[in-house]
């Protein structure tokens, strides 16, 4: 290959050659339309297959895991909801127990209730006062006794109905008291045994003054009852031996 041939060859490599131009003029055979149709259909079929495969991938392969995940999520939600509800119920019970344990009712709710109860009694004529109107002190004294719950500051106090206040419909006077465990029930001293029980309870609680008052009441209310039958020597000694 001489230098001239080399130059021609380099020109040919660069695309500048009469050989390339001559080749470009040659007949250009093409594949048959049947082959073309087969190839293109195969290409489209492959795409459709991929799409079905994609659908299958999500509908079948991920179906079970997604379903399982959904069930787990549902279970967790239900468990959380139930435990939350249970916690709320326990809180309610706990607060209720605490409430009972401390016996600390809402002052705002008890006093209006007591006032309403008192007003009802006044309207019905069961409760009368000498002066027509109760003094504020008496109202305050009355309220906790009537209400079903007692504010803290009124607990541990013994409130006896004043002399000028009487309750109609009862054979004997009733002492309205919050003694004995703060229970707000109206004390019933209509029988000797009830009064004696109250006195003993006072003694048991170390509230000797209250016990003595009730003891005097016993003596006045039931003068025909022999004290020696109701009280022991020790009890009478504590209460003042007024028999």
């Amino acid at each position: 290959m001489d230098q001239n041939d080399n130059k021609e060859f380099e020109s040919y490599l660069k695309g500048d050659s009469c050989l390339s131009r001559a080749y470009a003029q040659l007949e250009k055979p093409e594949p048959s339309t049947q082959v073309e149709a087969t190839i293109l259909e195969e290409a489209r079929h492959a795409v459709r297959k991929d799409q079905r495969k994609g659908v299958w991938f999500f509908s079948s392969r991920l179906d079970s895991p997604l379903g399982l995940a959904a069930v787990i999520m549902l279970c967790v939600s239900v468990v959380l909801l139930l435990s939350q509800q249970q916690g709320m119920e326990e809180d309610v019970i706990d607060s209720g127990l605490e409430h009972l344990k401390e016996d600390k009712p809402s002052r705002d709710s008890s006093i209006p209730y007591a006032e309403a109860e008192k007003n009802t009694l006044l309207r019905e004529g069961k409760l009368k006062t000498d002066s027509g109107d109760m003094t504020e002190t008496r109202k305050r004294a009355m309220s906790p006794a009537i209400s079903t719950s007692v504010p803290e500051r009124h607990r541990q106090t013994s409130i006896i109905a004043p002399e000028n206040v009487s309750v109609q419909g009862f054979e004997t006077a009733k002492e309205i008291s919050t003694v004995a465990s703060g229970n707000d029930a109206v004390a019933d001293y209509s029988s000797p045994d009830k009064l004696v029980s109250a006195i003993r309870e006072m003694i048991g609680r170390g509230r000797l003054d209250d016990a003595k008052k009730l003891y005097h009441r016993f003596l006045k209310q039931f003068p025909d009852q022999p004290v020696s039958e109701w009280f022991s020597v020790e009890e009478r000694a504590l209460l003042g031996r007024e028999d």
């Binding site: 093409e30 594949p31 073309e36 293109l40 290409a43 489209r44 795409v47």
Partner: peptide, 23 residues
């Protein structure tokens, strides 16, 4: 694009290369 599911992309590729490849 064809690999990602575009059949038309394949048709364009085929049109470009069918002659040279066949020859």
């Amino acid at each position: 694009k064809y690999r990602e599911g575009d059949a038309k992309a394949f048709e364009r590729l085929y049109e470009r290369h069918k002659g040279p490849l066949f020859r």
